[in-house]
Amino acid sequence: MTSPGQDLLTITRRPDTVFASGQGAWLTDEGGKRHLDLVQGWAVNSLGHSPALITEALLRQSQRLLNPSPAYYNRPLLDLAARLVGLSCFDRVFLASSGAEANEGAVKLARRWGSRMRGGAHEVIGFEQGFHGRTLAMMSASGKPGWSEIYPPMPTGFAKARLNDLASVERAMSPRTVAVMIEFVQGEAGVVMADPGFVRELRALTAERGVLLIADEVQTGIGRCGAAFAYELFGIEPDIMTLAKGLGGGVPLAALLCKEALNCFQPGDQGGTFCGNPLMAAVGLAVVDEICRADFLAGVRERAAQLSAGLRAISRDHALQGERGLGLLRALVLPADCADQVVAAAQALAPVGLLLNAPRPNLLRLMPALNISAAEVDEGLALLRRALAEVLG
């Protein structure tokens, strides 16, 4: 029997499992085995698998209008933009399809502003271990080790500083600097948090130097951290913010938001065939309306506290290195480079499996649906204990 995927371009190592359906916190494979999913498409399925809310929004909008082109307004585009402005500190919105596209748009906007207001300043400072997407420019903006060697020559104009080290940001600044781009939680680095004091000092420094602050909230935005946007938890306002992943709840949708003073694109400067299409915008509006209610966000914080406490107990019982995170974006640090073995053991559990993510060799990342139940959190923790026992003894 041949393995699945023989017709696909090789881009990652996948287990042979083929998933057929999903509901809420659970995925079911073609063999009928159920898996409790604590990955959820890398924090994409903010309301779990196949929520009725998204199904209904897709069906309703698909019967009305799919894509009149970005050259015209459509009602879901306008309504979602207004909703995001109303929820945030921003004044303008551009809708796109992926986080990398939104982040690239943020860099374009900053450079357009720099060309007009800062004498051609164009360089963007990012952070070591940061991740902003997989386009060539966003790979250069990211601080992932080794990425500069995969597709040379890489786009230039991106400097690097160290997270939580303000002096390193100051050293990276020059008259060419137009913006600093930060993730408040570096997900791909292993759920590494920015220190709130550092973020406040960074905001003060950028404001003093006339440099923009870009918040990459592709993974942390739309309720993931227990607030509508993570920047709220750090007590600052960025100049530009990007969203994706949980914004669409599983469909391809992203957003670039900015203050009015940065609304400097000229017609033709930015666009895209699918940008702001009503089908995805209708889903995004339904998702945002559901997640950004005060009672829903309170539930996220409750489940986050439950998950964090459970991970701390596991860490104590197995003599691990601890857990960390913000909201329902958490990591468990292992005592050795055995994360891949734990992921495989967890999926192989019977009668039900557990899906985990290992962004680092010694670390597990957990990104459950934001509406996961207390009972499902407890079941996930129990399954995780079993997988750790198999690997660690």
Rank of each mutant, 00 (worst) to 15 (best):
R111C: 10
R112H: 09
R112S: 11
R116T: 15
M117C: 13
M117L: 10
M117D: 14
M117H: 15
R118N: 11
A121R: 05
H122E: 12
H122T: 15
E123G: 08
E123C: 11
E123Q: 12
I125H: 05
Q129D: 13
G130E: 05
H132C: 02
H132K: 03
L136T: 01
L136N: 04
A137K: 10
M138D: 04
M138E: 04
M138T: 09
A141L: 08
G143I: 03
K144W: 12
P145Y: 02
W147F: 12
P155N: 07
F158Q: 01
F158V: 01
F158S: 01
A159V: 04
N164P: 07
D165N: 10
D165I: 00
A167K: 13
A167C: 15
M173V: 14
M173H: 08
P175V: 11
T177Y: 01
V180R: 01
V180L: 02
V180E: 00
M181T: 03
I182F: 02
F184Q: 10
V185H: 07
A189R: 07
G190P: 11
V191F: 09
V192A: 05
V192T: 08
P196A: 08
G197N: 10
F198Y: 15
V199D: 03
R200A: 09
A204E: 12
T206M: 04
L212A: 03
L213R: 00
I214M: 00
A215I: 00
T220C: 12
I222H: 00
R224N: 08
R224S: 06
A227T: 12
A228E: 08
A228S: 12
A230R: 07
Y231G: 02
F234T: 10
